[in-house]
């Protein structure tokens, strides 16, 4: 399938499949692992992130001429944090149960590297319409990935899906899967399956965070981000070795 670049459909497909932020780019691991204890929480997290991502993408794309290049990171942080706070208020007022379940992970969307990453890699350079669809695509990709992980964890770990019992009575839920270790395990198996099927493998072949700035939110947010300024941590390592050696 060959889609025209920067067109809405291409952007959606890119976010959901080609560059799925969770499975292909391995971004945003903190919320992915923390909020997928149930399918409902996963959807809640996914959609709120989508809303923030789309809004901040639009805003940053509109303001890209105004925001001075040197001060773009603080500006992005302020814009993203504002949208996060707005979404936080809305959720507290209108969906209090999801708000309570997601707790601290809602304000922490600020440091979700998917949002910063898209601002830097896409919205800060392209037009507003393409940026909106880029945000929607990435957001839906994120939501879908969370839903998949959340569903597996809830069904295996609690025997329910969206709160309804789905497993036969004889099945004893494996509690481990809704606890912390289950998150790591399910994620490991999803990526292993994708490796096996060679889906998005090109993006992950050399999965090595020390060589790929993308996998490390921290490097994403401040230095060159996902575009070529990799090896930040690698440098860090070498320097540390020099110092200590």
């Amino acid at each position: 399938m060959k889609l025209e670049k920067d067109k809405p459909v291409e952007r959606l497909w890119n976010g959901i499949y080609v560059e799925n932020p969770v499975f292909c780019l391995i971004l945003g691991m903190c919320p992915t692992l923390a909020t997928t204890t149930s399918a409902t929480n996963a959807i809640g997290m996914g959609l709120s992130t989508t809303a923030i991502l789309t809004a901040s993408n639009l805003m940053i794309s509109l303001l890209k001429k105004v925001i001075p290049d040197r001060m773009r990171i603080p500006s992005y942080i302020v814009i993203i944090a504002s949208f996060v706070t707005i979404v936080e208020f809305l959720m507290e007022g209108f969906t209090p149960e999801i708000y309570a379940a997601l707790g601290i992970y809602i304000p922490l969307i600020v440091v979700n590297c998917i949002i910063m990453g898209r601002a830097e890699a896409y919205a800060g350079k392209k037009g507003p319409v393409a940026s909106i669809f880029d945000g929607l695509g990435m957001g839906f990709g994120f939501t879908l990935a969370l839903l998949l992980i959340g569903s597996v964890r809830e069904i295996v770990g609690a025997g329910t899906w969206f709160g309804f019992k789905v497993t036969p009575g004889i099945y004893e839920p494996v509690n481990l899967f809704i606890l912390a270790p289950g998150a790591f395990l399910v994620m490991a198996f999803f990526v292993a399956i994708m490796n096996k099927l060679k889906i998005g493998a090109a993006r992950r072949t050399n999965w090595d965070p020390t060589e790929n700035g993308c996998t490390d939110c921290s490097s994403c947010a401040k230095l060159g981000f996902c575009s070529g300024k990799a090896a930040v941590t690698e440098e860090a390592g070498k320097k540390a070795e020099e110092v200590q050696g």
């Binding site: 691991m29 903190c30 919320p31 692992l33 923390a34 922490l108 590297c113 912390a180 998150a183 090595d208 965070p209 020390t210 996998t215 490390d216 939110c217 921290s218 490097s219 994403c220 941590t233 860090a236 390592g237 070795e241």
Partner: peptide, 14 residues
């Protein structure tokens, strides 16, 4: 609590 996962995975090779 899954906080700081990125650095945890990213800078733990050596």
């Amino acid at each position: 609590q899954f906080l700081g996962i990125c650095a945890f995975l990213g800078v733990s090779k050596k």
